[in-house]
Design a protein around this nucleic acid. Sequence first.
DNA 1: AAGCCGCCTTGATCTGGATCAAGAAATCTG
DNA 2: CAGATTTCTTGATCCAGATCAAGGCGGCTT
Lengths: 274, 274
Amino acid sequence: MDRNIAAKFIDYQVSCKDCCMANVCLPLGLSAVELDQLMKIIDRQSPMSRGEHLFQIGEPHKSLYAVRSGSIKVYIPTEGGEEQVHRFILPGELLGFDAIEGGKHTCAAVALETTSVCAFPYHRLEKLCHTFQGLDHELHRLFGKEIANEHDLLQLLAKKSAEARLASFLLDLSNRLKKRGFSEREFNLTMSRHDISNHLGLAVETVSRLFARFQNEGLLTVRRRHIQLQNMPEIKELFVNVSPTTSKRRIAPANRKGNIGGSYRLRKVKAAQV
Amino acid sequence: MDRNIAAKFIDYQVSCKDCCMANVCLPLGLSAVELDQLMKIIDRQSPMSRGEHLFQIGEPHKSLYAVRSGSIKVYIPTEGGEEQVHRFILPGELLGFDAIEGGKHTCAAVALETTSVCAFPYHRLEKLCHTFQGLDHELHRLFGKEIANEHDLLQLLAKKSAEARLASFLLDLSNRLKKRGFSEREFNLTMSRHDISNHLGLAVETVSRLFARFQNEGLLTVRRRHIQLQNMPEIKELFVNVSPTTSKRRIAPANRKGNIGGSYRLRKVKAAQV
DNA sequence: AAGCCGCCTTGATCTGGATCAAGAAATCTG
DNA sequence: CAGATTTCTTGATCCAGATCAAGGCGGCTT
């Protein structure tokens, strides 16, 4: 019986068809034949534990990777021990596009929790592309998606206020989790406040304060890394608002002078001084 | 004689081999046969004049484009008439990757001056990729490059101070111009201060002040849109310095208290109060 | 050459979010 | 389970860069 289960487990591991991420992963949109071929080149790695690296900066590029379960932080170590957290990868998402041009990874990837990934050796993938148009097209689409993602993030960092950044981060996460069959309203963050703030180009303290404020405003409930989004429409509102740089409005303009409490005050408080 | 010149001109227009951008454009790294085929699918557009759009947001995706001469601004119009300037395209550079996933352009492209481009109809390009491995590989490389570019910009916007942003912008421009056979030290900006500031996530006034400061510090000479970089090593220094967010140092720390003149003061001034 | 208009610069002031400084909770460790 | 560490929160203060407000300088039109 034990062996049976083990066998089943291994089988489950090996087949894309049975993988619960099949509908969001690379195999999406491939024909049965293409899928069969693709599966043959997949190199399954043994599960990684928290803190273990999938690849380090400068390592030669070998594969594109798909996360099967767990989550990964992609970051760029900078001179002076600092880092820039680039993105977080959820199950069914790919990584490793960064090294295609130069042949070496330009960033590092580390597991945030116990994580398992599928590796697609890149040279074999490219070869396969020449045989199967569908795969090549799919790969191009994924490249495009990668680029579109970066665009969004750019937009965010160039123009949005701190609150819009955090709102956007949470909504994005919520969306991606939903697509993958998880709850869109309730989830656990696998990354630290430090990682989040770094990723959003903010200070940890700011993120912490924003979480507190959002909670006070009834937008969400947060207890350490556990998040429940209570009022998604209103969170979306925050996200739409552009940054102080470009914006005219934000809050009732009439209140602005009165709102001397500073930026960390609740926005919903009726400004007594007005 | 006139016809002769005209004929020569047209010929020059049509052949990648004779195009002065051949060594930085898509054809780079292709075999003669591949190049021949590629040239057959190129759709040459008539030159665009300043302000004319190559594509608008939401338009269906037809082609990848290569700029042959002139320059293009890629931007995302946002609700409320604002825009986010995404990047500037120089001769020999490609654009149009943004629409591959969704089939529609997610941004708009407008000529900053008289500009001519080559269009590679995308479906024909993909088809060609199946015949010629070299082309497919090249395309992948370009995708990768596009992604790497975005990474750099992200890094910049997430972490760098205003002065580092402008320094980086100028150095990047200088580099790209050099690669294309133009002077790396002296050039004319084809974009307005507004475009630059928007691109860098800053206010116009800040960019203006920074130009003034850089000039006072002897780093460069600027007269309206004409730029001469005088001290590139020192500009590179500025760029390396990370933003206030992450950094510890910046200027002699001892001077910080003394430097009450505010951020727009010259950095080289010996702080009298120390 | 005078008047207009769209860029660009410069000065003064304001503010969102960083930084500094303490705790409070979890988590780790022996 | 006490102490040590790491992670997170909260408060006070500070400052880089935004915003507001005037000009200045070309270039264009008539």
